[in-house]
């Protein structure tokens, strides 16, 4: 009995944490945020999920995190595909977009380039930006996703440091970049 209960109890706990099921998620298009990240008020499930996927996350007043595992069309983000992120400056003192592998670590690439940030971002004349996320070097803003041969999924994460107060209060109203699938090899 103990062995069966152990398998069920531990297995269901791992399943729940890997699925990221909890009650404090806010979704904005393909992006989602664990609002209780780092908080002493976090429920046990959020605390477990954050410990496994974002240890040392700061509270939303200090930093907001949005992650995406799907594009705006609802398909999983794949390293052998090219995506275009389009948007406008985000309401924070500083922000960045970073790509991670499914193991939650930075993706190896020959240029050791892992993110695009508010500083250094190339903008269009109207202030908007386009960021290419692909295995192939793109002109302008580009985040590499590794080698196409890997053919695996990846994660995008937006960090917003010192987010504006209105965003902290109503993160569900954030205007975040669209993730458009352009092509796959």
């Amino acid at each position: 009995m103990l062995l069966v209960a152990l398998a069920l109890g531990v297995g269901s706990a791992i399943w729940v944490t890997q699925r990221g099921i909890n009650v404090s998620i806010v979704r904005v298009g393909p992006w989602q945020s664990e609002l209780a990240s780092g908080s002493e008020k976090a429920d046990p499930y959020t605390r477990a999920v954050v410990a496994l996927n974002g240890l040392f996350a700061l509270t939303p007043a200090q930093s907001l995190y949005f992650t995406a595992t799907m594009d705006s069309g609802g398909k999983p983000l794949m390293v052998n595909c090219t995506y275009k992120l389009t948007g406008r400056d985000l309401p924070a003192r500083w922000w960045s977009v970073t790509a991670y592998g499914p193991d939650n670590y930075l993706i190896p690439n020959s240029q050791e380039r892992y993110s695009v940030a508010k500083t250094g971002l190339l903008r269009e004349a109207d202030g908007s930006f386009n960021i290419s996320v692909s295995p192939d070097a793109g002109a302008g803003n580009w985040i590499p996703t590794g080698m196409p041969a890997d053919s695996q999924t990846f994660i995008l994460m937006i960090r917003l440091y010192n987010p504006e107060e209105a965003l902290v209060k109503n993160p569900q109203d954030a205007t975040l970049p669209a993730i458009t699938l352009e092509s796959c090899s």
Binding site: L8, G9, V10, S12, A13, V16, T17, P44, R47, A48
Partner: peptide
């Protein structure tokens, strides 16, 4: 029933122990 109850307790302990 006993196995399910025990697995719920183990589940809760596991979730609290992970962090």
């Amino acid at each position: 029933f006993a196995t399910l109850m025990l697995s719920v307790i183990i589940h809760i302990i596991t979730i609290h122990t992970i962090p």
